[in-house]
């Protein structure tokens, strides 16, 4: 039987199937404060990913027995819309949704000053409208902005990005195709100013050298995302200031 020729995801010139270089992020668009009813909100588009994040709190915990006497309870729900993937996804929380909710919550626990508001809860809701790989990282990036938008005290913004191995090469910010056909995936969440990793997972096989290389690449990606996050938070206020200045010039 003749060997079937497989089209490579990364070609010989180190260009990926979507035209990116090995260490290039997908284009990212961030918006803050786009939902009127939530206390804080943010929206992210990272490549084909489209994710909304909303935050409530701190507020009284319901049911009451869940309240913690010494700190605020962080709760997180990661949910994929039925239309977010090619084949309809059941809207009921799957095993994967529940796991991601947990790891995302744990990625925020070092960032939020939960001890400031004992016996309250801070609820994070993440809705994936369209998924194309790396949604947990994009969700963390968006939810961190939503927390900041809600005015919740934070040690630092959390930015997240994945690195991985595809066709024998270490690449940054894998999309769905690369994730499925690649050899390894390493999502990482990071607080840039405090230099602290808050989430690190790995799926697949990497040698220890490759692992180190992938971590460094992911950290670099996180730093880039961090700058975008800061810009997004400031954008809302800078805009008002600029229109003001223009108005003043006219006068």
């Amino acid at each position: 039987m003749p060997k079937k020729k497989v089209k490579k995801v990364v070609n010989k010139e180190n260009i990926r199937h979507d035209g990116r270089k090995l260490s290039e992020l997908r284009p990212i668009k961030l918006e803050v404060g786009i939902l009127g009813n939530a206390d804080g909100s943010a929206y992210i588009e990272q490549g084909k990913n489209k994710i909304l994040a909303g935050v409530y709190g701190p507020k009284e915990v319901h049911p009451k027995h869940l309240a913690l006497p010494d700190r605020s309870r962080l709760r997180c729900r990661y949910h994929m819309a039925p239309f977010s993937v090619q084949e309809r996804k059941s809207p009921a929380p799957s095993r994967r949704d529940i796991e991601l909710s947990k790891v995302i919550r744990e990625a925020f626990e070092p960032s939020v000053f939960t001890e400031y508001y004992p016996k309250t809860s801070i609820d994070i809701f993440i809705e994936v409208l369209q998924a194309d790989g790396g949604t947990r990282c994009a969700s963390i990036t968006a939810a961190s902005l939503a927390l900041a938008d809600a005015g919740i005290p934070l040690r630092d913004l959390v930015s997240a990005c994945a690195a991985g191995k595809v066709d024998g090469r270490i690449v940054l910010d894998l999309n769905d195709k690369e994730d499925k056909e690649g050899e390894a995936d390493l999502p990482l969440a990071y607080m840039s100013n405090l230099n602290a990793i808050t989430l690190l997972q790995m799926d697949g096989m990497l040698t220890s050298e490759e692992f180190e290389q992938a971590i460094n690449l992911a950290l670099e990606g996180c730093n880039q995302i961090y700058q975008l996050q800061k810009e997004a938070l400031k954008a809302k206020y800078v805009e008002v200031k600029e229109t003001m200045n223009e108005g003043a010039d006219e006068q």
Binding site: P153, L154, Q229
Partner: peptide, 23 residues
């Protein structure tokens, strides 16, 4: 000047006021 969470504001010799923390 506009700052965001996690921005380094000052080194020692200063006191951390409202909406800041010292580490």
């Amino acid at each position: 000047q506009l700052v965001t969470p996690g921005d380094l504001l000052a080194d020692n010799n200063y006191l951390a006021g409202e909406n800041t923390f010292k580490e």
